[in-house]
């Protein structure tokens, strides 16, 4: 393990932790602009988190240790994922701990604990939200795996840094399979991050919410950690998407400090554009009924499988 690798790992983690709430703030701002409302400030999620950390936590009487532990587990899983996904550099000593499949497992771990904690309290909304979250998750996970397999087939490895290295280094070629996988990945990330066609992050209407319904019983520092973790989740998904489909500008191999520092503004610009695209998709589409979700995610799965088959058939 080189010293530069270690430092780039630390820098990447720090950037993920600080940028994630700002990314959420940026998406909210774009959404407000696009729907002609006056936008909240960019740092609003930070203010929210600070406010929540200063409050006293209220825990339900029948809550078990599971309920109190979950925010820490979810936050730790998301922070670990942020350390694995190559967003700035591909020379990440930590990334050897887990490949793409284990990364999906990490997301699944956070989801399972979130759902268990929501059911732990025993309120109707909590368990309803948990059931719906698991329903969406079970449909989205295979599609996500298929997308990652397509990228793995092209680069011949399931380790994310290797995939990104191969994709960033290749000579110019048209990859229909990557185009399909890109669309599928966009659909999956919309569903996984509780975004509009599947869930609405801004709603508190009881019958339509999925992710928010699971968090109803949380307060203060627990809520702050969970909000931060979901911001990190959005950040992670954006970084996976950028690394797989737009890997240009990332510091490759054992890069020096200058390359890593140079990759930071590129990453910020890419995230800003991606966040705006997300806000645009959310503004343009209407929320689907929950029972239309299988159709939406089934299409994502289909596209991902087609990507893999086309890759096998055409070799591109």
């Amino acid at each position: 393990m080189s010293a530069a690798g270690f430092l780039s790992q630390l820098l990447q983690l720090a950037i993920a932790l600080t940028l994630a709430p700002i990314l959420v703030g940026w998406v909210n701002q774009c959404r407000a602009w696009l729907s002609n409302r006056s936008a909240p400030p960019l740092l609003q999620p930070y203010r929210m988190i600070r406010k929540l950390f200063h409050k006293d936590a209220v825990v339900a009487e029948h809550a078990s240790w599971l309920f109190r532990m979950t925010p820490y587990i979810v936050f730790a899983a998301m922070a670990l994922a942020a350390a694995i996904v190559p967003s700035l550099a591909t020379d990440l000593p930590f990334a050897r701990a887990a490949d793409a499949i284990a990364l999906v497992g990490l997301f699944a771990l956070a989801r399972v604990f979130g759902a268990l904690a929501a059911m732990d309290i025993g309120t109707a909304f909590g368990s309803m939200g948990a059931r719906r979250e698991m329903f969406v998750g079970f449909l989205a996970e295979p599609a996500l795996l298929m997308v990652l397999f397509t990228a793995s087939l092209i680069s011949g490895s399931t380790s994310l840094p290797t995939i990104v290295d191969t994709l960033a280094h290749r000579e110019f070629a048209i990859y229909p399979s990557l185009a399909f996988a890109g669309v599928a990945f966009t659909m999956v990330s919309l569903a996984e991050n509780a975004r509009i066609p599947i869930d609405n992050p801004a709603t508190h209407l009881e019958l339509t919410m999925i992710h928010e319904a699971m968090l109803l019983e949380y307060s203060a520092r627990h809520l702050a950690l969970i909000e931060w973790a979901s911001a990190l989740k959005l950040f992670n998904y954006s970084c996976i998407g950028l690394a797989l489909f737009l890997p240009f500008g990332i510091a490759e191999g054992s890069a020096d400090w200058l390359a890593i520092l140079g990759a930071t503004p590129v990453l910020i610009v890419k995230l800003a554009v991606g966040g705006f695209a997300l806000a645009l998709i959310e503004t343009l589409s209407a929320k689907l009924r929950i029972f239309r979700a299988p159709e939406f995610l089934g299409t994502a799965f289909l596209l991902a499988v087609l990507a893999m088959l086309v890759n096998l058939m055409l070799g591109s």
Binding site: E171, A173, I174, P176, S177, A179, F180, L306, V310, S316
Partner: peptide, 21 residues
């Protein structure tokens, strides 16, 4: 590396399959 026109045909083939679905 196959020539660019063959890549374009591959792309159109994939589009054709997508439209069929």
């Amino acid at each position: 590396q196959i020539p660019i026109w063959a890549q374009l045909i591959n792309l159109l083939a994939a589009v054709l399959l997508l439209l069929a679905f």
